[in-house]
Nucleic acid binder design. Sequence first.
DNA 1: GAGCGTTGTGTACGGCCGTACATATCGGTG
DNA 2: CACCGATATGTACGGCCGTACACAACGCTC
Lengths: 197, 197
Amino acid sequence: MARRYDPERRQRIIDAAIRVVGRKGIAGLSHRSAAAEADVPLGSTTYHFATLDDLLVAALRQAEDGFAKVIAARGGLTDPRSDLATELAAWMREWLAGDRTGVELEYELYLAALRRPALRPVAAEWADDVAALLSRRTDRLTARALVALMDGICLQVLLTGAPYDEDYAREVLARVIPPGPSPRPWSPPPGPPRSDA
Amino acid sequence: MARRYDPERRQRIIDAAIRVVGRKGIAGLSHRSAAAEADVPLGSTTYHFATLDDLLVAALRQAEDGFAKVIAARGGLTDPRSDLATELAAWMREWLAGDRTGVELEYELYLAALRRPALRPVAAEWADDVAALLSRRTDRLTARALVALMDGICLQVLLTGAPYDEDYAREVLARVIPPGPSPRPWSPPPGPPRSDA
DNA sequence: GAGCGTTGTGTACGGCCGTACATATCGGTG
DNA sequence: CACCGATATGTACGGCCGTACACAACGCTC
């Protein structure tokens, strides 16, 4: 149904918005700044995204997709023979290494859900997706706890400027994981597909 | 011109800024909105706080002080006979109960350090203070991990809108705490007082 | 009480913002 | 082709913003 002159116009605006947020933060995102970054007129951004929340939702969704692809490309934490805590601690090191901009961008969009109810379903999806990924290596409760703990560790690094301590992360992640080679693995039951619209 | 020297002028502006952030978020805070809330002229806010970061630093510091006082008034987690995980899980329930505004306000100011380096020392102080509080019941590494885990759990509740699950929180907090009645307690060594200016 | 630095106040300027809206262009339909 | 709805654009309005700055009121020192 949707016939567009420029089918990539909307996508270009989202990409531009992500770049703007990465460079200037959410506070620096506006219909105008996104339009300038995407090299489209102002009316184009206001047409495709009536409110800034709409644009942020699209940006968060896209950042989430990119994140999932990076995880998948990295092997997806699927090798049951590796130590999960070690693997997660190393992954956080890579994630936090060097340039802050990538992590900063993703956490800023994620944390924006605190004050923007429109973002909460997308943030919940993100957390659920990561937990589901980890659920292939441990039980659901543990997976949720690992996500929470990793979030907390990353945030302490990002918020306080403290260096990332991989040994510490591995140690406490290991404490959360119940002992045993592959305890209580869990597979999602069949159900209706999640609405992604 | 009805002009009196008001030594509490600065304090009133900080209080007003906190109310504004609580009601409209950091995005709604400006020299003007703080001035209106405090019922002082615009020039008064710009005089005492040249930049918004200055005002946010003062607000975060004050929120931190208020938080510490609430903890202290609650007994300060000092009873070594109680179960620490149970106590922390119950405390989070109280904190998250009912009105989101209080927690939202504190987390919003705290998380603002992600993009505002000026806030990072204050955020670091906050995290250190809470960890120091917990260090009276457990070792330092565990205390840091508990802070990270509690942050992660609270954020998942606040960001996704999911209900708080106290049993889950208690279970995973207990996993982080090493077994034993009062393992590896830790007291801070004497040293120079931390600069609070 | 004269002088001066600190504190407090009013006002104005230029800039960026969301929003609205008239207009233009194209794809599909009848 | 005529038509219409979806897509795209330019422009303008009113509002809030940070900032600057001249000036007023006060505390202090001499």
